[in-house]
């Protein structure tokens, strides 16, 4: 009895390191260890900054001197520059979403049909612009849309019998530059989204429509389009959110500042106030407003798709 007890304790003592390994390796603990990097990263790089940002928006943040100033950052937000940034961003979002949804739908339907030759080549070349960074692509666009008569865009304008344009110095052409740069880069990726969705349209439906005597246009509107609804909602949502996040398309054309703020965006305004002017509290308040806008859009999207169905598309 006595001896067996002591051997037991000996065994337990020997087993202690193994026991630790056992716990570490048990199926109950392992998943949490695997997930822990995500939890840590979420707390440090998302949750904490989000809370900190909200607190900061009620503060005046100067080096070594942080003061609670209530709502005055929010009161300051409603100024002409903010409205300019908000309206620029909104116009940009409306234009890019329209262009980056309607054109890819039409092109993907054409590309999916049997009568386009060399589809692989088309697909690859449409995808190519997404590989270039906004800075490199924007630099090329800047040189193509130069002010002189010798730049490509103005050569084409002159050839069409129109006056040369100082592209980076008018409100309308400034917006046009940002929209065309973004559309050029993302067109191919969006076409691929729609192409993937088109693979899922059952072919029998087209046959059934043929039997009912439906024409090409009717088939597009009554068979194809309803099947594209989920992917369309997805593409519209990410285009809206990416539109509200826009910064680089503006930076590459005007760097720090555009004439009359024709290129100022919401994120550009955060950057200008928070980083360049070092007015972090005010920048954080703009950030909170932007977060609310994006939050409302996301909620609307969730209602339209049914919650968290993103993976099925």
């Amino acid at each position: 009895m006595e001896t067996s007890k002591s051997t037991n304790t000996n065994l337990a003592a020997e087993k202690r390191p193994n026991k630790f390994l056992e716990i570490i390796n048990s199926k109950k603990v392992v998943p949490y260890i695997f997930v822990s990097p995500f939890v840590l990263s979420f707390i440090i790089f998302t949750f904490y900054p989000a809370i900190r940002g909200i607190i900061m928006s009620f503060q005046s943040v100067l080096p070594g001197q942080v003061e609670f100033i209530g709502l005055s950052n929010y009161e300051r937000i409603f100024n002409p520059t903010f409205y300019k940034a908000l309206s620029n961003t909104t116009i940009y979002v409306i234009l890019t979403v329209t262009i980056l949804t309607i054109i890819p739908i039409i092109l993907s339907v054409l590309l999916d049909s049997k009568f386009v030759k060399g589809r692989t080549f088309f697909r690859a070349s449409l995808f190519m612009p997404a590989l270039a960074s906004t800075i490199v692509a924007g630099m090329v666009f800047r040189l193509m849309f130069g002010e002189t008569d010798t730049a490509v865009a103005n050569q084409i304008m002159n050839w069409l019998g129109m006056e040369s344009v100082e592209w980076r110095y008018n409100a309308w052409s400034g917006m046009f530059l940002m929209v065309i740069l973004c559309s050029w880069r993302w067109m191919g990726v969006n076409i691929l989204y729609f192409l993937a969705a088109l693979q899922n349209v059952p072919k029998e439906l087209y046959e059934a429509a043929d039997i009912d005597g439906a024409g090409r246009v009717q088939k597009f509107f009554y068979v194809t389009l309803p099947f594209l609804k989920p992917v369309t909602i997805f593409v519209v949502t990410i285009s809206i959110i990416n539109g509200f996040r826009m910064f680089e398309e503006s930076f590459v054309f005007w760097e720090a500042g555009s004439p009359g703020n024709i290129g100022l965006t919401m994120v550009g305004y955060i950057y200008q106030q928070g980083i360049q002017q070092n007015d972090m509290g005010f920048g954080a308040a703009i950030g909170v407003v932007l977060m609310l806008i994006i939050f409302v859009i996301s909620i609307i999207q969730l209602f339209l798709t049914g919650a968290f169905k993103r993976g099925d598309e």
Partner: peptide, 14 residues
């Protein structure tokens, strides 16, 4: 769905 841009100022401070 949380864009990085709205966290960038507090992240910068961090």
């Amino acid at each position: 769905m949380v864009p990085f841009e709205i966290l960038m100022l507090p992240l910068y401070q961090l």
